[in-house]
């Protein structure tokens, strides 16, 4: 009851043979060594494990690795443009103290990135609403909302004109 899984992880083709029951989060962490995606609850509630599968944010503790067969998977390790530069959303979390222990942060950021794709200029209310599935035990959320707002703004100003027109 093992299956070979091949997927595109942050732009690179990866594959491995996994037990059918292997969750995507375990494949990412244990087989691919991408430990930026966390496991907080393992019961679909905390959002520490959020990654993108084919452009949509999902809880990677509640999808099988083999369900991501041939999919495009994006994790926190894949969002920055290069080694020396943070993604504007990551940068905003640092600037606005959107994290303390950091355990929830990768999930928060992956979640926030889909929000900004849907709503480039979200209100505080929309941000709080969208982050319903991401729990943080440290910050009290206010700075996370500030960070997402600032991150969204930075992404808008960075987006090339053609991309802005598309939205």
């Amino acid at each position: 009851m093992k299956t070979k899984v091949t997927l595109n992880l942050n732009g690179n083709q990866v594959s491995g043979t996994v037990e059918n029951r292997t969750l995507l989060v375990d494949f990412l962490r244990n087989d691919c060594g991408k430990t930026g995606t966390h496991i907080g609850c393992d019961t679909s509630q905390c959002g520490a494990c959020v990654v993108h599968v084919n452009g949509k944010s999902v809880k990677s503790c509640t999808i099988l690795a083999i369900q991501a067969q041939n999919a495009k998977v994006l994790t926190i390790e894949g969002v920055a443009p290069d080694e020396d530069q943070l993604h504007p959303m990551q940068d905003a979390f640092r600037t606005h103290h959107g994290l303390q222990c950091g355990f929830c942060t990768s999930g928060m950021i992956m979640s926030a990135l889909e929000l900004v794709e849907r709503i480039p200029d979200p209100t505080d209310r929309q941000i709080a609403d969208w982050l319903e599935g991401n729990l943080c035990r440290c910050t009290g959320y206010l700075n996370i909302v500030k960070a997402v707002k600032a991150g969204a703004e930075a992404m808008r100003s960075q987006a090339p004109r053609s991309e802005q027109n598309r939205q």
Binding site: V50, L115, W130, E132, G133
Partner: peptide, 9 residues
Amino acid sequence: IGDAQVRNR
């Protein structure tokens, strides 16, 4: 329903 990720799946 639930949250964004629950709704996505």
